[in-house]
């Protein structure tokens, strides 16, 4: 412990890859109240503007033969729509706007977070936890609303032998309540790890000896983060669809 601390002190300016995730008030100093506009607020706002630019301004001509931007907007629409329909079934299509909202927000937040010196909204556990809880709570309520107590059949595996069913039920209940935890930490963890590793490489680049390796590392990590930005949005969305399917069709 002591040696570790010494090493950190010895390496000059301490490498603090987590500093980038700190919330700061946009205007002046001071405590962050619930209404204070922060850097997170700013980048969420930019994400909203991005959504408007892509999905509203990009489609304003309603062209039969689409422009580039309109193509991308239609692609995003078709991608999520197909996902909802394939995973959650035809009844799930009703909830497509909510799922599209989640997907498009996460995609924009992830990609905006890749801009150097920006703030990555989805690296905040507060944000992903709220998204995951939104999904968890609304899906659970929807399940009970649609099926009443029969929704609990989700935990009662009727294909299994009777003796095993109570044990399976306990496992199912635990896994059900772990869902929002994994759902949220997966997204925040991936985004955060990618950014932190880039920053670690970047701090190595200050030393001329290993700068080339560090630069290659930064480029490689950035390339991977671009993939992660999309894949994690996709994973979050498809899991939401899976949970929605469980709520609509709880029987095993």
């Amino acid at each position: 412990m002591a040696a570790e601390a010494e090493m950190m002190e010895a390496s000059g300016p301490a490498i603090d890859p987590m500093h980038q995730f700190t919330l700061k008030p946009l205007f002046g100093e001071g405590p962050i109240h619930w209404y204070t506009p922060t850097n997170a607020t700013l980048w969420m706002g930019i994400a909203v503007l991005g959504v408007i630019a892509l999905l509203v301004l990009g489609t304003r001509r309603r062209a039969i033969v689409p422009s580039h931007t309109q193509s991308v907007a239609e692609l995003a629409y078709g991608f999520v729509y197909q996902m909802v329909k394939d995973v959650a079934g035809k009844e799930g299509v009703k909830y497509f706007p909510y799922i599209m909202t989640l997907f498009i927000f996460i995609v924009f937040a992830n990609f905006l977070g890749l801009i150097p010196l920006s703030f990555s909204v989805t690296s905040q556990i507060a944000v992903t936890v709220m998204l995951a809880l939104l999904v968890f709570v609304s899906v659970t309520l929807l399940g009970f609303y649609k099926h009443g107590l029969k929704f609990l059949g989700l935990f009662w595996v009727t294909q299994a032998p009777l003796a095993l069913r109570p044990i399976l039920a306990i496992i199912e209940v635990i896994s059900y309540f772990v869902r929002p935890v994994s759902h949220s930490i997966r997204l925040a963890g991936n985004v955060m790890a990618g950014h932190a590793v880039i920053e670690v490489f970047a701090s190595f680049a200050a030393s001329a000896l290993i700068a080339p390796i560090a630069l290659v590392g930064i480029v490689a990590m950035f390339g991977m983060d671009v993939l992660v930005a999309f894949i994690q949005a996709y994973v979050f969305t498809i899991l939401t669809c899976v949970y929605l399917k469980d709520a609509l069709h709880p029987s095993h």
Binding site: W34, M44, V48, L55, A73, F96, F105, M130
Partner: peptide, 28 residues
């Protein structure tokens, strides 16, 4: 910082939802 993030995230999500459900999705 959580209340702050919850609040602004809610604002952003509601805005995006309104934009999508009122304008973008019907148009596409």
């Amino acid at each position: 910082t959580y209340p702050n993030q919850f609040f602004w995230l809610a604002v952003a999500l509601v805005l995006i939802y309104l934009i999508l459900s009122r304008v973008a999705l019907p148009r596409i």
